[in-house]
Amino acid sequence: MKDLLEKMQNGDIKSLAKLITYLENHPEDRFVENLPSKGAKVIGFTGSPGAGKSTLVNAVISQLRRENRTVGVIAIDPTSPFTGGSFLGDRIRMKTHFLDDGVFIRSMGSGTSLGGLNESVFDVIKLMDAFGFDYILIETVGAGQSEVDIVYVSDIVVLILSPGMGDDIQFLKSGIMEIGDIYVINKSDLDGADFYKMRLESMLSLSNVKKPIVKTIATSGVGVEELIFNIKKLLSKFHNNGEIRKRKERRLKKHAESILIKRIQKSLEKISEFDKLSNVISKVINDICKNN
């Protein structure tokens, strides 16, 4: 373990990969907390299944590599709630980077989490940050309306839409439409892209914060430079106005919450007698106090 950590911090990819597996299987081990942050920028990508998240992430990697930045990717696909199995197929869109030593791609099942991420993602980000990637890109599962956990782990969230995904009423709904810092209309060579953008603009204009909308064609890389320009602009703005710090605090709070929930579930499982609700609750609280 110590050996792996040392090797990982010296840039050994295999040790990094092994440590990620370890973290996935031992969420209770808090060793990552002592790792120094090297200041990686964490960018989240979310959107519906088939909107082009993986392909856009692929195009973003290409651009960042042209700028000589190293990139770590965490790509999450759903874990079956029925069998526990998963088909992790995001990587297939990123083939061009398989042999590039400046790119590390890790696929993950979403586990039992319903928020579009895997619970260990908080720790894996810390690990990848300590490894020293310049950028960490996180791709969520194909998200519908309420999978918004990406907002708790990223410095910036890119929400990916594509033409034909509904009218302006969809833009007004709570949940995922609220979490984008940057909105991308991918597949913008499709019919209706301009009209879609216009409607998105008009709905976003109802709130006071002006958010960038970028049109992209991920398969050919069109618009990706503009997207990265906007990401960088926003990152520096968030650094200056304290937003990044606020988001890091929010991340810590959410992480604590997710660990506590797990802890409570564990205590609940120990209870064999379910009589009164208030008894059950005090038993859980007692168990947690006793075992901490």
Partner: peptide, 13 residues
């Protein structure tokens, strides 16, 4: 089939 058997399958095609 492996997915349905509860495994994590990384598919690179």
């Amino acid at each position: 089939a492996l997915r349905d058997a509860g495994m994590e399958v990384i598919y690179t095609g």
